[in-house]
Structure formats: structure tokens, C-alpha cells
Amino acid sequence: MTTVEQNTGVPRQPGEPRHRAEPSAGASRATGGRPRVRRRVFRPRRMVPAMIVAAVLVVVSALAAAGIIAALAGRRLDILHADAATRWLAGLSWSDPVAKVIGAVVVLVGLLLVVTAIVPGRPRVVALNCAEPDVVAGITRRGLRCVAAVAAADVDGVDRVRAKARGRRVRVKVNTPLRDSADASAVAGRTRKAVEQAMDDLDLARPVRVAVRVRRSG
């Protein structure tokens, strides 16, 4: 197990195959179109952050409402330790380091939430082109990995395969029993071609880069 050969694919050349960049309005109709819809369908729904924020709001507002209403009704229900909090805030000055740290933390949490909301996020499903209008199709990232691994495993001179799909990149690591470095790089080339062909057959809405690494295990 020694040398490592690398063979990194370049995204397809312009003008050539069917999926290149974001199609124009006309072209998008031809390829099954509405890339905006396509992208949104598979976008993460941000359920976990939303549920955390909503749950915190529920707890805090429920306690506050209960405390205030109890106080208005003449009862004491000091769940939030309102008196202690008031005393503490009355004794704390804005320029106190504690106040500044709290302010900074609040700003950071706010920024985090806004970024979470704005960043599209990494979809678990990768969109595929589809000729039919009204159809949005996608393949899971694991599925994509599997397709790449199967394509690579069929290549002559490949005996072990590992594939990863992340972002717009598919990385394939293969082992070859061939000892000669020229043979190994030929395997790398063939593997890359095979995986690229498989990706072409899938017809991904946004092309991926294929990178192949070959290890000589012989």
C-alpha cells in the first residue's frame, strides 16, 4: 500500500453535455425546468433550530405570563424570581463587563439564527434533471455515493472502492492490485471516466466534480 495517484476531473466543458450551469428560462423548460422550485423542495426545513427557539419562547413567555397574571390577581407566583432579577438589574450598570458579555452573547445568538435562516443548507437529496414539467426528482446523497461506487467497482483493475459525495464533489478512492504506477494512473483515468459517465446517466441538475484516488495495494 503505497503510492497515491490523483486524477481530478474538471467540470464538463461548456457547450457539451446536457447539464451545464443554471439553464436560462427557455432551456430550463426543456430540461424539466423551474430550478427554483427544484432547489427549494430539497432544501433543509430547519426544523430543529425552529423547534428549539419555539420551545424556549414557549417556556419563557408562559412563565412570564403566569407570573404577571398572578401578580395582577394579587397573588405571588415568583417563578422567575422577578424580585431578585429586578434587584440585580438595578445594581448592574450598562458598562459592567457582565452586561457587555451578555449583550455580545445575545448578538451572537441572533446572528446564528439569522445565518441559519438565510443559508440554504446542505440538502440530503441531490436534484436530478427531468424532462417532464411538474416533476422534481432527486437522489439521496447516499444513493449518489452508491452509484459512484458501483460504477468504479466495474472498472478493470479496481478491487476496493470507497466513495463520498459532499457538496458538488464526488470523491472515489479505489485500490488496485496493479503495481506499475503507469497502470495505476490508467486505472485512475478509467475510473474517473466510468464515474463521470454514471453521473451523466443520472443527469444531475448541477454537475458534480469527480475526483479519483488510486492506491496500489499489490
Binding site: V41, V135, G138, R142, R145, C146, A149, A153, R162
Partner: peptide, 18 residues
């Protein structure tokens, strides 16, 4: 309007056959 989601039968990338 149709959404098709494709997954593979095997644990992708770490297929025991491969």
C-alpha cells in the same frame, strides 16, 4: 406536480459486495 426521491437499496459507498 410530482416529487420523486430516489434512494439506493444498499448502504451507499460501503457496499459489502464492493
Amino acid at each position: 406536480p410530482t416529487v420523486v426521491r430516489v434512494r439506493m437499496a444498499t448502504a451507499g459507498g460501503r457496499n459489502p459486495d464492493l
